[in-house]
């Protein structure tokens, strides 16, 4: 296995953590977020600044998570006030606000970002192992959450918030929880990314990354952890898989997005049941 493969695997792992974190907010709890890259960016910037200041990566990562989680809590309060399309637009604005502020902030390196982030000291294999560990942890948390009482509450809010409230579910409490956990995990993914790339610029954390994450969730199958993991793997490796397309990759990417939405709106997670319907007794 070459260093290139190792780095590709790390990147895929980071995107899995990121996509699964968005799925907690969007898939489980049903709150559409189009600015999730901002929290990834918060995690990346906090971790990068602390690493550059001499703090070991393993200590910097949780701090990045914590701060991203707190930011998520603040945006979560917005989700109590606005709903549906209005929430989608609010989170979209949060994404633009983050990039706009970072771009003009001299302390955060402005347009040029932060370069020369020191190595974690774990070595390439150690870094890959760290990413793998975080992936396992995130996926386990997501599966655990979706199967216990909290996940049920999330799903009920996603299905019908008024009905959930009538049944005595404190929807505000659970929405804030979803934003908090989801954004903290996005911060973790961002911290891992800063450690992986060792060079970050504000443009990375813009609208297109938020959309990529949303596409991973929806193409994978909204609400299904396994589907979202598959979606994240597929879209991260997309440039590799479709390398033969050369200059036409974005064209095909757009067409793929449209095609999945038209013919398989439940995403990859909907395929097994479709196959079963075909193969099963009629």
């Amino acid at each position: 296995m070459t260093g290139y493969h190792l780095s590709l695997i790390s990147l895929t792992g980071i995107m899995i953590v990121f996509a699964v974190s968005l799925n907690m907010i969007m898939g489980l709890c049903g709150q559409v977020s189009l600015g999730h890259a901002a929290f990834y960016g918060v995690g990346a910037y906090v971790t990068a600044m602390m690493s550059a200041g001499g703090v070991p990566t393993l200590y910097a990562l949780p701090v990045g998570m914590l701060i991203a989680g707190l930011m998520g809590l603040i945006v979560g309060f917005a989700s109590l006030r606005v709903r549906d399309d209005f929430l989608a637009i609010t989170t979209l604005a949060v994404g633009f606000l983050f990039v706009g502020v970072v771009r003009k902030s001299r302390a955060l390196g402005g347009e040029f970002g932060i370069s020369g982030i020191p190595e974690s000291g774990l070595g390439p294999a150690g870094d890959a192992f760290l990413v793998a560990f975080c992936v396992v942890l995130t996926v386990a948390l997501s599966v655990y959450l979706s199967r216990n009482w909290t996940g049920l509450a999330f799903r009920s809010i996603s299905a019908n918030e008024e009905a959930a409230q009538t049944l005595g579910i404190n929807s505000a409490h659970y929405k804030l929880l979803a934003f908090c956990i989801g954004c903290a995990l996005a911060g973790l993914a961002g911290g891992l990314y800063a450690n992986y790339a060792r060079f970050i610029v504000p443009g990375t954390f813009g609208f297109s990354l938020s959309i990529t994450a949303a596409a991973m969730v929806v193409i994978g199958g909204i609400g299904s952890t396994a589907g979202v993991v598959a979606g994240a793997v597929l879209l991260t490796l997309f440039p590799e898989i479709f390398r033969f397309l050369g200059d036409y990759r974005m064209l095909v990417y757009g067409a793929l997005l449209v095609g999945v939405m038209l013919f398989q709106p439940k995403g990859l997670a909907g395929i097994p049941s479709m196959v079963r319907r075909w193969a099963g007794p009629r």
Partner: peptide, 24 residues
Amino acid sequence: SILSQPPYVPLLASLGVLIFLQDG
């Protein structure tokens, strides 16, 4: 064909069209 789907489905399809046309 996707009017009856939840709102994020047409939104993402629309984004796909935007990406496709921009690259076109």
